[in-house]
Design a protein around this nucleic acid. Structure first.
Length: 434
RNA sequence: GGAGAAAUGGCAGAGUGGUCGAAUGCGGCAGUCUUGAAAACUGUUGAGGGUCACACCUCCGGGGGUUCGAAUCCCUCUUUCUCCGCCA
């Protein structure tokens, strides 16, 4: 199915932006190691064609409209013969408009499909780079604990204390679908409740969202067409299992026209996330490091464009505060162009140090999408001039469960068992797993 | 699953073939009044394409059809509501 048909996209706002900022866009997309010159030129050329066709068609329609009006008047004044003569003429016009319409449609489809493949333009501050090697560490905090000599990675601990069963998940579903048991399950639930509480305290409204979404929602946030194949898809009903709460959460605002005073909006929600992770394998995907199904609490913001980067900073501080409370050593990376996701203009990743694995684990990703998603979502607000303007959208994990859990298990392990971070004890009801 | 009703601008809600992009109300914006605000009154206010600006074109849930002409008639899909049935 064509994308344009799926989404009824007629909005060409993006092309106007491309035309005016072509050089700047090319320079910035170069940070993603993409040479967009040809793509942008194509888009502009296609749009020129589109306009020409549109004008031609419009003129034919105008002609046809005025004749119809005339016919109406002739019938009223009883000049039937004249009217019938004119009818002949409109029939010819109809043929012409029909072909033009078809041509225009095809053109729009090609253009729309092209536009959907252009990723967001990175923020000025984003470093150029092709892979995670080029990410910039911009912040680091917390002490890396000195573990006892028998310290183990979390998958060994999970087995030892019988709190996560990877093999059982294998039987029931397949690899990457672990089963949490006993205190493991309880700890998981505690973390979810704790994160949601922290987020609502910070002013986010809690939502419970659908775990399956339609294709339009996936286009809205940019998972389609970019991530087709990475999502689980039910072809019978053409629904996708959500890869993140970002998709249903941001699509709450699809096709909305807000008042300026409605902004900012912040929502939070817990959902499981489903990812096919096609193509990933190896030692780094052991245990909880990479799963097909995992839990995550997400925060999502809709902001006035003038305020979105300030809001971004606020989200970073919010997540810092949570990690401080959990007393986990963490660092923040500014992602380089190549590592920044398709829809994002600026992304910071939070990583927790896993002492037993001696490596950093990504536990949160905070992004400002600027108007990229809003353009696809048709999410606008009426500004003080009375004009409709695109909002900015942001989101971040607050937080992703499995690796936080891995970090806790590994960093809090002692010879007597795994201690529970103080702030979680009210939620778990126990203070050690032994 | 069965029967019926409905889908119109930011919201509510009129409109059954040309004079309808669409009454009216609310909301928004501007003004009068006020020290300021509220109330009241006056004016203004759908979206997109296109243009230097006009003109012009498109949009009344989606798609298709009838007609010279469709918000209005027909078909179809989707969604919502009411009643009945079933059910965690």
């Amino acid at each position: 199915m064509s994308i344009a048909v799926e989404l009824k996209v007629t909005d060409m706002l993006q092309v106007a932006f491309i035309r005016e900022n072509k050089e700047d866009i090319i320079a910035r997309l170069a940070k993603r190691n993409i040479d967009a010159t040809e793509m942008l030129n194509n888009a502009i050329a296609l749009d020129e064609d589109r306009k020409a066709l549109q004008t031609k068609l419009d003129n034919k329609k105008a002609e046809s409209n005025s004749i119809s009006k005339e016919i109406g008047n002739l019938f009223k004044s009883g000049e039937t013969q004249k009217a019938n003569l004119l009818k002949e003429k409109t029939i010819q016009l109809k043929e012409i408009t029909k072909t033009l319409e078809q041509e225009l449609n095809d053109k729009v489809n090609i253009l729309t499909e092209l536009l959907y493949k252009i990723p967001n333009v990175p923020h000025k501050s984003v470093p150029k780079g092709g892979s995670e090697e080029d990410n910039e560490e911009i912040f680091k905090e917390g002490e890396i604990p000195a573990l006892h000599s028998e310290a183990q990675p979390h998958w060994e601990l999970a087995k030892k204390y019988d709190i996560i069963d990877f093999e059982l998940g294998n039987k029931i579903t397949g690899a990457g679908f672990p089963v949490y048991k006993g205190k493991g399950a309880r700890l998981q639930r505690a973390l979810i409740a704790y994160f949601l509480d922290k987020n609502t305290e910070a002013g986010y409204t809690e939502y419970q969202l659908p775990h399956l979404v339609n294709a339009a929602s996936c286009y809205g946030t940019g998972q389609l067409p970019d991530k087709d194949g990475q999502m689980y898809h039910d072809s019978r009903d053409d629904l996708y299992l959500i890869p993140t709460a970002e998709v249903p959460g941001t699509n709450v605002f699809r096709d909305e026209l807000l008042n300026e005073t409605d902004l900012p909006i912040g929502i939070t929600g817990y959902t499981p996330c489903f990812r096919r992770e096609a193509g990933s394998y190896g030692a780094h995907v052991r245990g909880l490091n990479r799963l097909h199904q995992f839990d995550k609490v997400e925060i999502i913001r809709v902001e006035h464009p003038n305020n979105s980067y300030k809001a971004f900073d606020g989200m970073i501080e919010h997540i810092k505060a949570i990690l401080r409370e959990l007393k986990l050593p963490f660092r923040i990376l500014k992602l380089c162009g190549g590592d920044t996701t398709f829809a994002s203009a600026l992304t910071y990743d939070f990583e927790v140090f896993s002492t037993a694995q001696d490596r950093w684990l990504e536990i949160s990703s905070v992004s400002n999408f600027e108007a990229f998603q809003a353009n696809r979502l048709k999410l606008r607000f009426k500004n003080s001039d009375g004009k409709n303007e695109l909002c900015h959208t942001l989101n971040g994990s607050s937080l992703a469960l499995p690796r936080v859990l891995a970090g806790i298990l590994e960093n809090y392990q002692t010879e007597n068992g795994i201690k529970i971070p103080e702030v979680l004890v009210p939620y778990t009801g126990f203070d050690i797993i032994s």
